[in-house]
């Protein structure tokens, strides 16, 4: 569908802009996603070793 659009003589600049937005936003989403997974894994490891925060011990 995208190939059907004729963007004229400056098409490369237009597609370059949209590509840059897609790339940077995808990298941002991926970084946040993997960072979240990593923190959850670290938290689960610590909790499985029986480590509790003082506030959780009651």
């Amino acid at each position: 569908m995208l190939a059907m659009i004729d963007l004229g003589p400056h098409a490369a600049y237009i597609w370059g802009s949209y590509g840059a937005v897609a790339l940077v936003l995808a990298a941002l989403v991926a970084w946040l996603w993997f960072d979240g997974r990593r923190q959850r894994r670290l938290l689960a490891e610590l909790e499985s070793r029986g480590v509790r925060r003082r506030s959780d011990r009651g």
């Binding site: 923190q39 938290l43 610590l46 909790e47 070793r49 480590v51 509790r52 925060r53 003082r54």
Partner: peptide, 9 residues
């Protein structure tokens, strides 16, 4: 939280 737990450990 991870940092706090590591400190507690």
């Amino acid at each position: 939280r991870v940092k706090a737990l590591r400190l507690a450990e």
